[in-house]
Structure formats: structure tokens, C-alpha cells
């Protein structure tokens, strides 16, 4: 039995088709499996890859197989590659104590591009989420990935940020192994840079706070 982790620990990675949601959940799942956890990942892909909402449910347990769907209101952590998708998932699966980390870069739905629907400014989303989850964090993951020359790596930046919370045993060594397997060794350097950038963004965001939000010292 691994100490200190809820059984199961329920992690949701959400975003929009094409953002690398499935790859992110695979990498996370494999990092945790390397750590000896029993993992179930529930996800759907296919039609949703065409600009639809995508969501991966990752169940992390010391020893039992949990179902591929997290019950409503029972997420322990939500990683949003896209802010509005984070809000959607927060409403269905979140609660005021959930660990919520969101990218700030919107992907506009077709209805918003066409003008029928409204996508609120990111500041409005941020303050709305903070009023629900005081410890929520927003980071400029895509902007950071653009700096690396590969905007698609926003998903890896987000993995880095989640790793930095130390809620889960996600170290750089395991990331290297999992990323090598799923993202291909030719882009490993970029992936490691994105992972480190995510950790840095988290630290910077935390240093601006008056009190620590996450148990950053719980596990070494």
C-alpha cells in the first residue's frame, strides 16, 4: 500500500480534440504504472477528435481495478488543457477542494467563431473558478509551448505543472521513460523542456501566493 494517496485517486485530463489529451493521459498513466500503481484510464476518442470536448478519467489505486468512469463530483485533480473545458468538467466532477490546474489559452468552439455563442474573457473564467475553488491555478501552458517552438506541447507543460504539485509521484525520470515511449525519442528533448517549463510555471505561480495550496513537501 502506497501511503498518503486516496484509493482511488481520481484524475481528469480534459481539453479539445487535437490538443494531445489522449497522449497526456497515456503518459501520466504509464508514469504512475511505473510507480507500481494499478491504473485505469477511461476515455473516448473518434468523433470527439473533430473539435469536440475530450476527457480522460485516470483512476489511480494501490491495487484494485476501478471503472473507467469517475462518479460525478468525485475528481481529486483536474488538469484542463483548455479553460472552458476545465469549467465544464469542474461543474460535473469537481468540488471546492479539488486540485484544479488550467491552461489559459482558449480554443474557440465553432459557435463562438460564428458569433452565436459567447466565450467569456479568460479573466472572467479565472475569477469564476477561483470563487468555486480558491486554490485553482491558471498557467500559460500554450504560450510557454509556443516559446519552445511547438504549441502542441502545451499538454506536456500541463503534465509538468501537475507533477510539481507533488500530489502524485510523477518525477522527471518516469516522465522521461513514458515520454520516450509515447512521444517518440526524436522529440524527447522538447518534451523534457516542456515538462520542466510546466514545473517552473507552477513554482512561479505558487511563489506569488500567500499560503501554499498544495502539499508540495509531502513526498520527496
Amino acid at each position: 500500500m502506497k501511503p498518503g494517496l486516496k484509493n482511488p485517486f481520481n484524475l481528469i485530463v480534459t481539453g479539445v480534440g487535437g490538443q494531445g489529451n489522449v497522449l497526456a493521459s497515456r503518459i501520466l498513466g504509464n508514469m504512475l504504472a511505473l510507480g507500481g500503481f494499478q491504473i485505469t484510464i477511461g476515455e473516448t476518442f473518434g468523433a470527439s477528435q473533430r473539435g469536440g470536448s475530450v476527457m480522460s478519467h485516470i483512476r489511480i489505486s494501490p491495487g484494485s481495478t476501478w471503472s473507467p468512469q469517475i462518479p460525478k463530483g468525485c475528481a481529486d485533480a483536474i488538469v484542463a488543457l483548455e479553460p472552458a473545458e476545465g469549467v465544464r468538467v469542474l461543474s460535473d466532477y469537481g468540488h471546492d477542494k479539488v486540485c484544479f490546474i488550467s491552461n489559459t489559452r482558449p480554443v474557440y468552439p465553432a459557435g463562438v467563431i460564428a458569433g452565436g455563442a459567447v466565450y467569456p474573457p479568460i479573466e472572467e473564467i479565472r475569477s469564476g473558478v477561483l470563487s468555486l475553488v480558491p486554490d485553482a491555478l491558471f498557467i500559460d501552458a500554450t504560450e510557454e509551448a509556443i516559446k519552445l517552438g511547438r504549441p502542441i506541447l502545451g499538454n506536456i507543460v500541463m503534465i509538468g505543472a501537475l507533477a510539481a504539485t507533488r500530489l502524485l509521484p510523477l518525477d522527471r525520470k518516469k516522465f522521461r521513460v513514458a515520454a520516450d515511449k509515447f512521444a517518440g525519442s526524436d522529440s524527447l528533448d522538447y518534451n523534457l523542456k516542456a515538462f520542466d517549463a510546466g514545473r517552473r510555471l507552477f513554482q512561479t505561480a505558487m511563489s506569488r501566493r500567500s499560503r501554499p495550496a498544495y502539499p508540495v513537501t509531502r513526498r520527496s
Partner: peptide, 13 residues
């Protein structure tokens, strides 16, 4: 909040 802040995402090409 989600009704306001998370507009529906229809499938697109």
C-alpha cells in the same frame, strides 16, 4: 457558472 463560461462545443471539420 459552466452554463455561462463553457459554450457548447459542436463537432466540426
Amino acid at each position: 457558472f459552466a452554463d455561462n463560461a463553457a459554450p457548447r462545443r459542436e463537432l466540426t471539420f
